[in-house]
Design a protein around this nucleic acid. Structure first.
Lengths: 153, 153
DNA sequence: TTTCAATTGTTGCCATGGCTACATGGTAAA
DNA sequence: TTTACCATGTAGCCATGGCAACAATTGAAA
């Protein structure tokens, strides 16, 4: 099963290492993006983002959410007074907006490819963090061309 | 910006919690899948999977790779004798094959949507772990319908 | 056969992201 | 005004996944 016969051809070592490095980077910010997006949604929808609600919606215990929110604060994405609700900084809001746009884009692409909405929403939650700008632009072109007519298949 | 006016409507609390739970589960197995897939590729391509090569291709220091491989062994996915190359168990090979098929599927979908091959390969590396069976089937239908004619846009 | 470089193994450190258990603060009901 | 309940904060535990530093083994060159 060498290069001649098989389909298998490994990428070059540095290229592959770079790729996995990028995946690790994306993974590191994925959780922060999810929190920031959720906080923005809660602020828009309920007028406030409380720790308990964040924890319940993330499906984690409240100390877990508290730790992550502290990380958001350290990174200048969120802010809060003791025993009060959580708010986003300017940077946090920008990140939330970008995440929200990308999320909706991925969902629409999946829907257009025939994936049911609830599954599309669920899968997009994980996939969205790994969509590069180039891929995002390709997605937009695809939606512009086929999205408005509903499903493609 | 309530339900009436805006686009924003949060999913129900349990639904959203379930979604994020699924993302966490997928994240937990993502690294194992990547290792198993890489080991299978090295075995097919080079005839052996050595620790140094795995570490270099993953872009990590060798103790990091060693720890992860120990985890693979604990979970019954890989096996090795001290100071020897790494092999996959039956289960590990099955996992590798599934991961490989899904990886190629995601790459082909992205390519068909107009994403350049190298970017498609890179993005697929992160996205593939979050593609559910339902979405995978939709991808296959899409490829069957449009894939053979090259890019869609 | 000896020696030495490369590979593998091990230990111990750090940050992250889960959890439980407990302490503290805030507020509404009694 | 108390009190009791809920929300928030904090401490400490575990596993994961990075790292550097050092130990042990292998195997090839001298």
């Amino acid at each position: 099963m060498t290069k001649a016969g098989g389909v298998r051809t490994l990428p070059s070592e540095p290229a592959q290492a770079r790729r996995f490095g990028r995946v690790r980077d994306a993974q590191a910010t994925a959780l922060l993006e999810d929190y920031v997006e959720l906080i923005a949604d809660l602020l828009a929808d309920a007028g406030e983002a409380r720790l308990v609600d964040i924890a319940r919606r993330m499906g984690v215990a409240h100390p877990t959410a508290a730790k992550t929110i502290n990380r958001l604060k350290r990174q200048g994405l969120a802010m809060s007074e003791p025993y009060r609700g959580i708010f986003l900084t300017e940077i946090g809001m920008q990140m939330a907006e970008r995440a929200r746009v990308r999320h909706r884009l991925v969902v629409r692409v999946l829907e257009t490819l025939g994936v049911p909405t609830d599954v599309a929403e669920a899968d997009a939650e994980g996939m969205e963090h790994y969509v590069s700008d180039v891929t995002g632009r390709a997605f937009m072109k695809f939606i512009d061309a086929y999205g408005q007519f509903g499903t493609i298949s």
